[in-house]
Design a protein around this nucleic acid. Structure first.
Lengths: 139, 139
DNA sequence: CGGTATCCTCGAGGATACTG
DNA sequence: CAGTATCCTCGAGGATACCG
């Protein structure tokens, strides 16, 4: 092969991941999955549910900045992708409990690694950002 | 080790991550970092640069769907956060090479785990999605 | 309690053209 | 070759009000 991309023994084969389909990278299955995980509230909700199951109201209290609309939507998206299970208890008034599925727990492992990386290194990122912005302003 | 959550020891302490600041979760440093990583092209560019350094044009060819504007912007954001190094060669015409910094390589480890998880499990996610949508339509 | 239904804003991301 | 500069679209996400 004469492509300049496929040599060098990288950590992972780029082509294997990208899976070109008639030139459309938008269908790339990896991006399709990562896109949802990258949502504004997704990681926080996953983090909470990884700790233990929660009811809707309890999640709102845990993450007070989220609007009820986005909490509903985020939970529905997570449920749709198979990460979260939704169980309704026909009490009065009704209670709804959300918990991670097996797939959700599986996905949470690499996600939590990323979150913990961010937790450990956000200072360095912040410093890099400030240095960059200062150089921009100065120059 | 005393965990806040009585349930079998949560994987990570929610409060430690969330770091409430006068009720503003928007400042959560974790989300601040994850937000950039969750960008549409970030993971793909990181994936490419983890393999080896690339020039601007080579990256465009690798990821043909990206617009030059977004490639520029994504690279600048990655550089700003300290993940990517930008080196200019004053040849004729000038060449610019992008490579991962040490911080970038550090961040790429958990990121690649997530990407590989997506690579291995996107079929299950797709199946869950279809099942969910079908149930919605049917009911 | 656990949601829908609407309306609105704002910025990520795309298309196209030009430049040192 | 490696970008800027403009303009535009579209949908994520917020605010508010109502509902079973």
């Amino acid at each position: 092969m004469d492509m300049d991309s496929a040599e060098g023994g990288g950590i992972y084969d780029f082509e294997t991941i990208v899976r070109r389909r008639e030139g459309n990278l938008g269908d790339c299955p990896v991006r399709e999955v990562i896109a949802n995980i990258g949502g504004k509230w997704t990681s926080l909700i996953m983090l909470a549910l990884a700790e233990k199951p929660y009811r809707f109201g309890a999640l709102r209290r845990l993450v007070p900045d989220i609007s009820q609309r986005m909490l509903t939507q985020t939970l529905r998206d997570l449920q749709r992708d198979g990460y979260v299970n939704r169980e309704v208890f026909p009490t009065k008034p009704p209670g709804v409990e959300y918990s991670l599925t097996e797939l959700g727990r599986s996905m949470f492992q690499p996600l939590s690694d990323l979150v913990m990386w961010a937790e450990r290194n956000h200072e360095r990122v912040r410093a890099a950002r400030e240095a960059f912005d200062e150089a921009e302003t100065g120059a």
